[in-house]
Design a protein around this nucleic acid. Structure first.
Length: 467
RNA sequence: GGCGACGUACCCAAGUGGCUAAGGGAGCGGUCUGCAAAAUCGUUAUUCACCGGUUCGAAUCCGGUCGUCGCCUCCA
């Protein structure tokens, strides 16, 4: 079955066909490093992680670019406030961003270009647009894109640009543009920018927000590439503007598939500064919440569905992961040498898993395929012993799907000597049928987050996933 | 005002015209266990916000109503 994605540009699911056979060129809007990233940001990055991992699972060679916006209004404002160069100001946030990606087990993109390292490319692009008379310079040295020169403007956001002109929220800003809908490609230097500027043939100034994505995607992926992702709030104006300026400059189609991820909500509302309901990933990690539980929570709801982030969801995620891990662990031992009997079940699960993700990354259905297999295998084991070959096949399947989910492996620390001694003394107590002491010790360990399980083969331990 | 999304069990969440409405969590009752845990069995939606319509047939398509949320130049 063919892979299909919902394309914001056409508002329908379309079969995915890469431009170049076997290769997917993917651009994903990255962070503005003026603050720590919040979990809403990471919902988008997790969705993109799912996308890239699934494309790789399907055998594509993926080339992903994620920009790092390290110059913009807020960065300049805050850096100047702290008397820091924008470099000095942004580096800690950039480092924190990568540390957070690692915590959530997000696979690295092939390129993380920074805006400040691509000023010449942006200037060149702006120059091209000015040369084609699709952009103009205003009195203050800013360069604006002339939206009236691009008739398809509004195609992505499905907005009527004429009605925008009268829109209630549109306020005239301090820059001088000919038409209110025109947007800045290049911003002329103003005194409050301090020493943040680049000296170019347009004079002192700095790039507008949208131009970096056009310039950097062109540099690393070419003028026409396969997929561009971001949050729904990037549809307008950011991605609309990217299309306008890119296609105007190159005369080519910019992107074939636009995939947008819905918002993460807290208390059923979008996170926003005014509601002060931001949740930073670091806060959750500092509280000791297991990052894989966060990963699973962000991953397990379809990306075009709003996701209300709650403690209950984290709990349910932790339990789902525990079920997966326990099942995987249970595949060790107690095996018989015999011919495999469950190949059909495993093949079906694999088929269901793939066809679900093929359908616009339907992760809920894909997870259902996995849990159904677990149940079927467990039911089989009520009355039969698992064969070695079956167990190996199931493990291979789980390891394969875990190249996408990435929640199976634990980074569990080993037991301390004290903890090992406690387990040992409990074993002795149990041997002496001293249930009182045995249960007391089990409770002590549970309080430390260690769960003991007794079975005919002996006692095993695992760490509780904390939420 | 313009554009758009959503409303499925106690909670989360698939399903977009046709077999008994996936799956996860939770509860309750069994099996197993020294007791637990894990696993497992049974159980919890004759019904998909509501009202009409189309159809042999609707959670799914169409119209309306109610409710929630988002976008309309900071935003993932």
């Amino acid at each position: 079955m063919a892979t299909r994605f919902y394309n914001t540009l056409t508002r329908k699911k379309e079969e995915f066909r890469p431009i170049e056979h076997g290769i997917v060129k993917l651009y994903t809007c990255g962070p503005t490093v003026y603050s720590f990233a919040h979990i809403g940001n990471f919902r988008a990055y997790i969705f993109e992680d799912l996308l890239r991992r699934y494309l790789k699972f399907e055998g594509y060679h993926v080339i992903q670019v994620m920009n790092i916006t390290d110059v913009d209004d807020k960065i300049i404002r805050d850096a100047n406030k702290m008397n820091l160069s924008i470099d000095k100001f942004t580096i800690p946030y950039r480092n924190a961003f990568f540390a957070d990606l690692d915590a959530l087990r997000i696979e690295r993109a092939e390129h993380y270009p920074s805006a400040t390292e691509h000023i010449p490319e942006m200037v060149k692009l702006v120059k091209t647009l000015v040369g084609k008379e699709m952009a103009y310079e205003s009195d203050d040295g800013s360069i604006y894109f002339k939206v009236s020169e691009y008739p398809k403007y509004g195609q992505l956001a499905n907005l009527n640009i004429d009605s925008m002109i009268r829109g209630s929220r549109v306020i005239n800003d301090e820059y001088e543009k000919e038409q209110i809908r025109d947007f800045a490609l290049w911003k002329g230097w103003k005194s409050e920018d301090g020493n943040v500027f680049w000296e170019t043939e347009f004079g002192k100034g700095r790039p507008g927000w949208h131009i970096e994505c056009s310039a950097m995607s062109m540099k690393y992926l070419g003028p026409h590439f396969d997929i561009h992702c971001g949050g729904v709030d990037n549809i307008f104006p950011h991605h609309e503007n990217e299309i306008a300026q890119s296609e105007s400059a190159t005369g080519e189609k910019f992107v074939n598939y636009w995939l947008h991820c819905e918002h993460l909500l807290v208390n059923n509302e979008k996170m926003s500064k005014s509601l002060s309901n931001f949740i930073y990933l670091r806060e959750l990690l500092d509280k000791g919440i297991d990052p894989t539980a966060i990963r699973f929570t962000l991953l397990s709801t379809h990306y075009r569905q709003k996701l209300n982030f709650t403690d209950e969801k984290l709990d349910a995620s932790a339990k789902s992961i525990t079920r997966l891990r326990d099942f995987f662990r249970s595949l060790e031992g107690c095996l018989v040498d015999s011919k495999p009997e469950l190949s059909g079940l495993i093949d079906n699960a694999r088929k269901d898993f793939e066809s679900s993700l093929d359908d616009d990354l339907n992760i809920s259905e894909a997870l259902a395929a996995i849990f159904s297999l677990i149940k079927e295998v467990n039911v089989f084991r009520q009355t039969h012993k698992l064969t070695k070959l079956d167990a190996e096949n199931i493990k291979r399947f789980l390891n394969d799907i875990d190249t996408i989910l990435n929640v199976l492996s634990t980074s569990e620390s080993e037991l301390t000597k004290e903890e090992r001694n406690l387990i040992e003394s409990r074993n002795i107590a149990r041997k002496n049928r001293n249930w009182l002491d045995a249960d007391r010790i089990r409770d002590v360990l549970l309080a430390k987050g260690i769960i003991l399980e007794d079975s005919p083969k002996g006692t095993t331990w695992k760490r509780k996933i904390s939420t």
